[in-house]
Design a protein around this nucleic acid. Structure first.
Length: 825
RNA sequence: GCCCCCGUAUCCCAACCGGCAGAGGAAGGGGACUUAAAAUCCCUCCAGUGUGGGUUCGAAUCCCACCGGGGGCACCA
């Protein structure tokens, strides 16, 4: 008697069995045919959400499929366990962040186990564990030795809500990426990683990432913002040191009619010191400082500035041009100073018109008559140089290079490249992160903590409440007061902690050697697995994690600890899971809890539902009905698969000689193997499932028509179970055993299709006349072109459209298509 | 403003290198089974591919322009 599909019992039993057997453990040293498959480790806030389920399921299907294809597969997991939400939860509840974090990790893990993810549980780590963050500190010291970690005073993004500074990457449209509060600009002394040293390599090596989509590469290119141009040196009257400006259009130098400094530029202060302009500048600076970053960078606001009473000398013609400060010039970009060419730059033009500064045309369009006095907007396009001495007539295509070369020869300029990317600000004024391993000695100043004193552990007793003044760690007096590693005299520890993106910038290396006590990882072991063959995760990390980790990889390479310039040349970005077009959230009430879904319909049905929803990269709008969608779509199909399997005699009793219906069914099995394999290769899980549904439909139709050949049905079901196993691991394992096998379906080799069996005996040839389908004819798959033409011309329908004339042109694509072009009558 | 991605049945989604627009699912309609219903099984309806041009024997697919949606960058010199 056939059993029903009791998914809860089946899933519980196999889940425990696999874990007890350490079924997904990977070897330390892989064979040459290995696959390192990694999905971004989660942040343990609450339980898993649907976004996790989607990407982990995709990742798991890839890992399991790779195993069946004979690869050594490493599919690890860990937790990104440091970070602000834990600390905020701890403050609200009056507990230690550690407790909240570990409670959530336990929830995550239970859900992951039930969902059947084939992670290698022996390699798990938590980044808040001193055994992990010790190596953040170790790596920090290596960066420090090479000048890649440094402390400097700079304008920083301060989140008034989270009471910490943020990296540029963590500010979205002027707001804190985590809490949404508008960030403030503060001049603070902070720790930075010198990522700008790697800006060129970060752009150039994007080309090595052949498995990235264009969208992501474009986001990173935009973010890094490489801008080739020139530096030009100006002399300001009465100032000893020359001032350098950056420009992308040195060919417009002859059109510079004024010179502008950023209001905060130290030189501005110096220029007006003791003059009548001094007080006005102070007032103007205060005005600018009172603007938020959003206002300051708005293109809508009229530009403001003031003359400083000094003149700069244009290096190309010695002309005296007035020096101004203006709010549209930013201290952070380029050199904080510009030459203003109003005729050919929109911003300079706007400013010149509001302050009645001269506009001089130095680029003219062919046949154009641009006039500085009358033009209504800047001409920033191409043309040829005018009013530029010997360079008149030089076209824009070559002018930038020609002029810059000439400036170099004169010693007044040089080719250079500017970047939008800023150095990565890594210090945070919060508790729950890696302590920065630096102490400050009265005598020796900033001193790195020696390697043998690592880890610098987080103290337990701390007042977490951020004050905005000092970091919480400053309240742990016993911890802060230490001794100088050099002289032994009293010293104070650095009280800022590291950005948690430091943790995630190298974690995939730690999985490869997770218990190493001497090094973050053994390069020899890591290099055997690296780079990651398939990485997966959200595109929300496009300019954060995905740029930082690439930077780390390059530094590791320069340290001799890595061989590969890119850590994850192939990356899959899953789409967002939404409901009603908006992100799922508790407060909005548009949420489906994974536990609810697998509780009602099972992990297999939920996994399959996520995979069936569409291509992995596409956003997925969950139907508003909620979990019921699983009960309407993939759960009934799994029951259908279950019933089909139950119709197979486990004793393996043979069937009769196969007749035409059985041969047709067998052909369908092999065609399914062929296309499903192709779909897996393309990560096209939704179409793979559709193909399997088709096969199941065929089997049902065969049985509904009275067919019951056990041999062919068993072939079909066994192939189906193998093809489905990476996506729905439980039902396939259970039925594989019920069919009488003692081993695991997950240890089976991936099925191979028989090309002879998969091929059709007859092909359908489409006959087009003038591009329109006029007839279809059954032909042999290996039909010759001449035979196709003969058959096509023999068709009455075709003759009707040729009007009895011979075709003027014949295109054949054997065996599927022949296209005839009728002669013009 | 510049750049990237996407527009296909009522809905979700297919369509390889340009070659019969439809694989799958949902919803809808009909039928079988049943005393009846549910469940199950079978059958079935549904668009000419956002719009307008172009290239081609032939365009959902390639090119151009536009419209709509999503995203990135943006007083970046």
């Amino acid at each position: 008697m056939a059993d029903n599909y009791h998914f809860t019992e089946i899933e519980d039993r196999w889940s425990k069995q696999w874990i007890a057997d350490k079924k997904w453990a990977a070897p330390v040293h892989p064979r040459p045919n290995s696959r390192y498959v990694v999905t971004m480790y989660p942040y343990p806030s609450g339980d898993l959400h649907m976004g996790h389920v989607e990407i982990f399921t995709i990742n798991d299907a890839i890992a399991r499929w790779s195993r069946m294809r004979g690869f050594d597969v490493l599919n690890p997991i860990g937790w990104d366990a440091f970070g602000l939400p834990a600390e905020n939860a701890a403050i609200r509840r009056g507990i230690n962040p550690k407790q909240w974090t570990y409670d959530n990790i336990a929830k995550h893990r239970a859900s992951m186990e039930r969902l059947g993810y084939s992670f290698d549980w022996d390699r798990v780590f938590y980044t808040c564990d001193p055994a992990y963050y010790k190596w953040n500190q170790w790596l920090f010291l290596r960066f420090y030795e090479r000048g890649l970690a440094y402390r400097a005073k700079a304008a920083a993004n301060w989140c008034p809500n989270d009471m910490t500074v943020l990296a540029n990457e963590q500010v979205v449209a002027g707001r804190c990426e985590l809490c949404g509060a508008e960030v403030e600009r503060r001049y603070l002394t902070q720790w930075f990683f010198r990522i700008t040293n790697y800006a060129d390599r970060l752009v150039d090596d994007l080309e090595l990432n052949t498995g990235w989509n264009e969208r992501l590469k474009s986001i990173q290119r935009n973010w890094i913002g490489r801008s080739p141009g020139a530096e030009v040196t100006f002399v300001i009257e009465g100032v000893d040191d020359p001032v350098t400006v950056f420009t992308t259009r040195p060919d417009t130098l002859w059109g510079a009619t004024f010179f502008v400094l950023a209001p905060e530029h130290p030189l501005a202060e110096q220029l007006v010191a003791g003059s009548a302009y001094e007080q006005d500048l102070a007032i103007f600076r205060r005005e600018v400082a009172s603007l938020t970053e959003i206002d300051r960078t708005s293109t809508e606001r009229p530009k403001k500035g003031m003359f400083l009473g000094k003149y700069a000398l244009n290096p190309v013609n010695g002309e005296r041009i007035p020096v101004w400060v203006a709010d549209y010039v930013l201290l952070e970009y380029g050199t904080g100073a510009i030459m203003a060419v109003p005729a050919h730059d929109e911003r300079d033009f706007e400013f010149a018109r509001s302050y009645n500064l001269p506009v001089r045309v130095v680029i003219q369009e062919p046949g154009g008559d641009l006039n500085g006095a009358t033009m209504s907007g800047a001409h920033s396009g191409d043309g040829f140089m005018v009013n530029s001495g010997d360079f008149d007539g030089t076209p824009t295509e070559s002018s930038v290079k020609v002029v810059t070369d000439w400036l170099e020869s004169q010693g007044t300029g040089r080719h250079t490249v500017n970047f939008r990317l800023r150095d990565w600000l890594i210090s945070r004024q919060r508790y729950w992160g890696t302590p920065i391993p630096i102490v400050y000695c009265e005598e020796h100043g900033e001193m790195p903590v020696p390697d043998e004193d690592l880890p610098v552990e987080l103290p337990d007793v701390v007042d977490f409440n951020p004050t905005g003044q000092a970091s919480p760690l400053a309240t742990a007096a016993e911890w802060v007061n230490t001794t100088c590693p050099k002289c032994g005299k009293p010293a104070r520890r650095e009280t800022d902690t590291m950005d948690t993106f430091v943790d995630s910038s190298w974690y995939f290396n730690r999985y490869l050697d997770p218990h190493n006590h001497k090094l973050p990882f053994d390069p020899a072991i890591a290099n055997a697995w690296m780079p990651i063959d398939q990485y997966s995760g959200g595109i929300t990390h496009a300019v954060m994690h995905l740029i930082y980790a690439r930077f780390f990889q390059k530094v590791l390479m320069d340290l001799g600890m890595a061989e590969d310039p890119e850590p994850f040349p192939s990356l899959l970005n899953q789409g967002m899971v939404t409901m009603g077009g908006r992100p799922m959230s508790k407060s909005r009430g548009n949420i489906v809890e994974p536990a609810e879904a697998f509780g009602q319909y099972g992990a297999d049905a939920l996994r399959l539902y996520m995979l069936f929803s569409g291509p992995p990269e596409a956003d997925f709008d969950w139907p508003v009905e909620g979990v019921g969608a699983v009960g309407r779509v993939t759960f009934p199909w799994l029951q259908r698969v279950w019933r089909l399997c139950e119709a197979i005699d486990p004793s393996g009793a043979g069937g009769q000689e196969p007749g035409p219906p059985e041969l047709a069914l067998r052909k369908q099995v092999h065609r399914t193997i062929e296309v499903v394999t192709r779909d897996y290769e393309a990560f096209s899980f939704n179409t793979a499932i559709a193909r399997m549904m088709e096969l199941v439909n065929e089997a049902y139709r065969y049985r509904a028509a009275g067919g019951d050949n056990q041999t062919v049905l068993r072939e079909l079901v066994e192939a189906l179970l193998k093809l489905l196993a990476p996506m729905a691991p439980y039902i396939t394992e259970e039925q594989w055993h019920r069919l009488g096998h003692s081993g695991s379906v997950h240890d089976e080799p991936w099925p191979v299709f028989d090309a002879g069996l998969a091929a059709a005996e007859l092909a359908t040839m489409v006959v087009q006349v003038n591009g329109k389908v006029r007839d279809t004819i059954e032909v042999a798959p290996d039909v010759a072109a001449a035979e196709m033409e003969r058959l096509a011309l023999a068709s009455d329908k075709v003759q009707g459209h040729l009007h009895g004339l011979a075709p003027s042109k014949v295109i054949t694509k054997p065996p599927k298509l022949i296209s005839l072009v009728a002669p013009q009558p």
